[in-house]
Design a protein around this nucleic acid. Structure first.
Length: 289
DNA sequence: ATCCAGGATCTCC
DNA sequence: GGAGATCATGGA
């Protein structure tokens, strides 16, 4: 466990383990961050701007007071979870997972805002990460609230409600504009009961999410994993499909159902963590070929 | 230039 | 109900 040091405007975590800020942010689970320097990022999340600087096992959060750390960032970075045990469990008797976990041993699954995650992963479909980041920043600048230094919070459903299809297209959302409108309308009418997700079963939340036009099984699973703490779900995109087919299915193409059965058989309640190590491993090692 | 991007929907049969 | 085309946009 780490120690905490507080100053007027900073919180320092001394001796953090299983934590590499570059890997946490660049592994494809979130989109509102900017790299300022080596292991030095600016994050926008939960209506706050945070700079985070990592030096070995020491991590500085600024500006940050103890209350914000305890109430927000502790949970955002999932610091109460022991990733050493998770990595040992999922990589036992599994050569591929051992490689994936070793490749990026500092990944953590963030606990992101549900609404922002819904819109972000609607935007993510058939898109690339630099463009996803730009679209989300544009939406925030045009419809969010300034929270300091020219940085804008992610817009609430109420703030997005006034945006027409043309307005959203002007933020480069493309064919996803009407999907964003669908989610916004359902959030405002209560058809998408975000505030009640915590009391609902994983299947119940998935079904509710998939009633939104533009949310299918993969986007729903990303929201469940990255914002609803449902760490057993296994979002399966083209990369995960590829790596699972190659290593766990000998010479034939499995369908999504077979992949999920295999993942839950091998990783159980930890399937979501396994998915993130696998996704980052295959995508980064293969894309640069 | 053509393909591809953390997919989902629509349109056929 | 399942395969195939289509969807905006820009980076590679």
């Amino acid at each position: 466990m780490y120690n905490i040091e507080e100053t007027k405007s900073e919180v320092k975590l001394i001796g953090v383990s299983d934590f590499e800020i570059d890997e946490i942010l660049e592994c494809g689970q979130c989109f509102r961050f900017d790299k300022l320097d080596k292991s030095h990022y600016r994050i926008v999340a939960h209506n706050r701007v945070l700079e985070i600087i990592q030096n070995g096992k020491d991590v500085t959060l600024t500006p940050c007071n103890r209350a914000d750390f305890d109430n927000i960032w502790l949970h955002y970075f999932d610091l109460n979870t022991d990733y050493g045990i998770i990595k040992d469990t999922i990589s036992a008797n599994d050569i591929l997972m051992r490689d994936a976990v070793e490749f990026a041993a500092g990944i953590r699954i963030l606990n992101q805002d549900v609404w922002e995650c819904i819109i972000s992963f609607i935007i993510s479909q058939n898109n690339n990460i630099p463009r996803i980041k730009r679209i989300i920043r544009l939406l925030s600048e045009r419809y969010g609230t300034e929270i300091g230094g020219g940085v804008y919070s992610f817009p609430t459903p109420e703030q997005l409600a006034g945006a027409t299809t043309e307005d959203l297209m002007a933020c480069n959302t493309g064919f996803r504009a009407r999907y964003i409108q669908s989610a916004t309308e359902m959030a405002l009418t209560g058809a998408l009961p975000i505030d009640n997700f915590a009391n609902m079963s994983t299947e119940g939340v998935r079904e509710a999410l998939m009633r939104v036009t533009g949310i299918g099984p993969k986007v729903a699973d990303c929201i469940l994993l990255f914002a609803c703490r449902r760490h057993e779900v296994f979002p399966t995109d083209v990369w995960v499909k590829r790596v699972m087919a190659r290593y766990y299915f000998d010479s034939y193409e499995p369908n999504i159902k077979e992949i999920h059965e295999r993942a839950h058989g091998a990783f159980g309640k930890l399937a979501g963590y396994a998915q993130q190590y696998l996704f980052h491993y295959i995508r980064t090692t293969e894309k640069n070929q």
